[in-house]
Design a protein around this nucleic acid. Structure first.
Length: 874
RNA sequence: GCGGGCGUGGCGAAAUGGUAGACGCAAGGGACUUAAAAUCCCUCGGCGCGAAAGCGCUGUGCCGGUUCGAGUCCGGCCGCCCGCACCA
């Protein structure tokens, strides 16, 4: 006999302990079975897990448990992305050491993850703030440096003068530091860079091979890399108008075909030629200063008007020495794309058109759209950027854009000035090198020593790790490493003289760019990876995480894996063979009368769906129900996973996360939905209990009666469908099939209750119950273990093999086909499975409904799709 | 502006070009109960006919097209969401 109610609070910790002590989820590297590596993006240890984590890790766990049952040696590890700014903020606010704060958070979140019943190999746990982890990262930094993949160079950065740190673009809001509120300055700083651009073409090309990645992510990366093919053109400058030493201007264009529509040239305010002219022209110097002050914030750019300043310089058209173009400095030209200079063709570029309309430079259309008379084609407020034939372009007239591009390139490549061709073809990328220097404490120290005599000296590998000092203070802004009394002062490894450490630390995205490789052998003390082991496990077969990492983390990891290959730390290019990006967890919002946000657990909801009313639990004041939005602290519409697990159990939370929406879409967390999931766990428990009371014959019956056979067919059909859905990560579909099958088994049980008990039916019921429990085991593992035991199994279901479909049971003797007449469904016909088309046609034409629909006409054609449909065409 | 995705009942959603709405939620009706909860059964896109079983028409944002057959493929609109963006 089983208890009436399933008690998750009792069962879940018990089974978690069981799995733990038996080390059921400990993965061996030398296991001979085929490998399967499933990974969810590891969390930042903020202190508490949130529902997004629950969704992410539940999906991964379903895959892990399913693949394990299917006979794979599954690697399913977990760790902590443990460096980052929040720890420093906590240090400042609460006077607690960032390391201590992080460790406390890890302990708390690990307990929460354990309460979810995830099938993780915790022996492989890593934290990126652990010197045992980051020493290997420092080692790879040095190897990358030796391989020419790391570079130190000056670059323009956002500098917060109050916090005295570099800010990422995302941390600059309306031109001000997000924390200090100070107006951010543009500074030239010397920084460390990973040369991701060295792999720009390869990172782009390989996207085509990532077939199990969402198209969306591939497209985003493609756009981010931003390849363009164009022409570098050297324009001669009219010496009469140009400062000494400057005789030409090189520009980059993807539209050399529009060269005869040129009206002006434009330089970036950061262009050296602009600086040269500004030396003798205070008005230009002032203009350039104004442009730089505008900054890079998105808001500013959106609103900024196109502004220019005429330098007085004239450039000579490459096809016509008598054609002179004015050279402007313009605020919309970026120094770090192409050459920082352009020629402007206003008729076919909106920005250029806006510019000439402001400065009265006019425009000449050179590409005429199809079906438009060139004589009447004029451009006024909107540039024409489409296809067409060349006009007003001398020798290009009549050509297509592609032909014209080619013709211009061919001619200018042949022409020379000063022994060099006037133009050359060039591929350009939008992608920039990855600046990894951060003026922060809580990150991986960059293992470099600066010596006045020897310059930049790598820390010898034997001296790794360069550990972070623990005795730091956060009472002032700025980098505590820089002002630490002793830490940075060291002897130069080369000359032994006094030297200082690099006090910048690495961007935390470096930490997460190789953790998936470290999981394969986290015990290796000497090297970042064991080549045999890492090449066995990688690539990750299924990676699961949020879309917010579509570019940064996923692109950095792709680069890092290539760099690891180049330096012998791995043998592959692509780290993630399969990628799945899950949707967010969203929830209704609530607002009190005074406009303040109210949390879901402070609200009572009454009324039906179309007339729902919310009131405060405390006091009963009315609450306004707002739109459904992403769970966030600011809107207070979060639900605490601990509360849900306490109230309903982890299995219920997991089930609901999977059941309601397709995994890539947002899921709306509702109390009703969770209750529905909870009721289903209880229903399964009762159902399995009832089934367990059937004493199945010890051996399989030789023959099955119709009801037994029907149940067996349903069980094996469900098995096939659920397996297929899990393979495709269609968890909501898998859940639906389980609901359906559970309902059917329940129906059979209550029918069998009233009738005479038959051994073959009982046998089929026991088989069906076993299959049912196996099917929901990946989603609700604790309940499954408990049910498995009730069904009399001696071993854990976590170690049971996935059941095998009996293919014969999926084949019906007869099939029922819908019959259409002229595409409208009129009847159905049941025929033998192997009936010939002639038989089917004869049977169909005999049907009254068909004859009626034909209205005496003879059928022209009868289309029979085997086992699918019949369509009679009259 | 460029790129990508989506649009199906009251709601979340299913549906290799082949019976649209599986499954769940909500709702309505019934059984059980002193009552409630829980549980079980039935109904559930719209319109119409019928006492009922059932039958007919209509229906997947809008307009066209391809096809024996379109939620699905193609073209054009409309709407929503997401990403990128003075990238020459």
């Amino acid at each position: 006999m089983t208890a009436d109610r399933y008690n998750a609070r009792d069962a879940e910790p018990r089974w978690q302990k069981f799995w733990d002590t038996r080390e059921i989820f400990a993965t061996k590297n030398d296991d001979p079975r085929p490998k399967y590596y499933v990974l969810e993006m590891f969390p930042y240890p903020s202190g508490r897990i949130h529902m997004g984590h629950v969704r992410n890790y539940t999906m991964g766990d379903v895959v892990a448990r399913y693949k394990r049952a299917k006979g794979f040696n599954v690697l399913h590890p977990m760790g902590w992305d443990a460096f980052g700014l929040p720890a420093e903020n906590a240090a400042m606010e609460r006077k607690i050491n960032p390391g201590t704060w992080t460790q406390q958070n890890i302990a708390a979140m690990k307990a929460q993850l354990k309460s979810m019943g995830l099938s993780l190999d915790w022996r492989r746990e890593i934290a990126t703030c652990d010197p045992e982890y980051y020493k290997h990262q420092q080692r790879m930094f040095l190897d990358f440096l030796k391989a020419g993949l790391v570079e130190r160079k000056q670059s323009k950065v956002n500098w917060d003068p109050i916090d005295q740190t570099v800010l990422a673009n995302e941390q600059v809001i309306d031109g001000r530091g997000w924390r200090s509120g100070a107006v951010v300055e543009q500074r030239e700083l010397t920084q460390w860079f990973f040369k991701i651009t060295a792999y720009a073409q390869d990172l782009l090309d390989a996207l085509h091979r990532l077939e199990r990645w969402p198209d969306k992510v591939r497209t985003m990366q493609k756009n981010w890399i931003g390849r363009s093919e164009g022409l570098l053109v050297r324009f001669a400058l009219d010496p009469k108008t140009t400062p000494a030493g400057e005789d030409e201007l090189e520009i980059y264009t993807t539209r050399p075909d529009t060269l005869f529509g040129a009206k002006f040239m434009a330089l970036s305010p950061d262009h050296p030629l602009a600086a040269a002219v500004a030396k003798k022209n205070p008005a230009l110097a002032a203009f350039i200063a104004e442009c730089k002050r505008m900054g890079v914030a998105q808001e500013v750019i959106d609103k900024a008007e196109k502004l220019g300043f005429d330098t007085g310089i004239k450039a000579v058209h490459p096809f016509d020495p008598s054609w002179k173009l004015p050279v402007y400095v313009a605020n919309f030209i970026l120094m770090d794309y192409g050459t920082g200079a352009i020629f402007g063709c206003p008729a076919h570029d909106q920005r250029d058109l806006d510019f000439v309309n402001k400065y009265g430079l006019g425009n000449t259309p050179v590409v005429c759209p199809p079906d438009v008379d060139p004589k009447t084609f004029i451009i006024t407020g909107t540039a024409y950027e489409g296809d067409g034939r060349m006009i007003n372009s001398r020798f290009l007239d009549g050509m297509t854009i592609a032909q014209a591009k080619e013709e211009v390139a061919r001619r200018l490549e042949k022409e020379t000035r000063g022994n060099r061709p006037v133009a050359q073809r060039q591929v350009n990328f939008r992608l920039r090198d990855w600046g990894i220097s951060r003026q922060r404490y809580w990150g991986c120290p960059i293992p470099i020593i600066h010596c006045a005599k020897c310059g930049v000296v790598p820390v010898p590998i034997k001296d790794l790790p360069v550990k972070l000092p623990v005795d730091v203070d956060f009472d002032r802004p700025g980098n505590p490493l820089d002002r630490h009394a002793t830490w940075k002062h060291v002897a130069c490894p080369q000359c032994g003289g006094p030297a200082t450490r690099e006090t910048d630390t690495m961007d935390t995205f470096v930490d997460s760019s190789w953790y998936f490789a470290r999981f394969t052998d986290p015990w290796d003390e000497d090297t970042p990876t064991d080549r045999k082991v890492v090449d066995h496990w990688l690539p990750v077969d299924q990676y699961i995480g949020g879309i917010e990492h579509a570019i940064l983390h996923l692109l950095y990891s792709r680069f890092f894996t290539r760099a690891m290959k180049a330096t012998g730390h791995a043998g592959i290019d692509e780290p993630f063979a399969g990628l799945f990006t899950q949707g967010m967890v969203v929830h209704e919002t609530y607002r009190a009368a005074d406009g303040s946000w109210v949390a879901p657990n402070e609200v009572d909801i009454a009324g039906s769906d179309d007339d729902r009313r919310a009131t405060l639990k405390a006091g009963g004041a009315p609450v306004e129900i707002g739109p459904i939005e992403k769970m966030s602290k600011s809107k207070r519409n979060t639900v605490d996973p601990d509360d849900i697990i306490q109230t309903y159990g982890a299995d219920t939370a997991r089930w609901f996360m999977l059941s309601d929406s397709p995994p890539e879409r947002d899921v709306n967390w509702t109390e009703r939905g969770v209750q529905g999931a909870w009721r289903f766990t209880q229903r399964l428990w009762r159902l399995v209990g009832d089934a367990a009371e059937r004493s199945a014959p010890p051996s399989r019956p030789a023959e099955f009666s119709a009801p037994a056979l029907a149940l067996r067919k349903a069980a094996h059909g469900a098995l096939a469908k659920v397996s297929d859905a899990i393979e495709k990560l269609h968890f909501n579909v898998a859940v639906a099939h389980i609901y359906e099958f559970a309902g059917l088994l329940q129906g059979t049980l209550s029918e069998a209750q009233t009738g005479r008990r038959a051994p073959d039916v009982d046998w089929a019921i026991r088989e069906a119950a076993d299959i049912l429990v196996q099917l929901f085991n990946p989603m609700m593992p604790h309940l499954a273990e408990e049910c498995w035991k009730v069904l009399g199994h001696q071993t854990a279901i976590a170690e049971a093999a996935w059941p095998t479909v009996e293919p014969a049971l999926l084949i019906e003797d007869t099939v029922t086909l819908p019959v259409q007449v002229n595409g409208r469904r009129r009847a159905e016909v049941t025929v033998a499975r192997d009936a010939t088309n002639e038989d089917i046609q004869a049977a169909v034409l005999k049907l009254d409904a068909v004859q009626k629909a034909l209205e005496g006409k003879a059928p022209k054609k009868v289309i029979i799709v085997p086992h699918r449909i019949v369509n009679v065409v009259a």
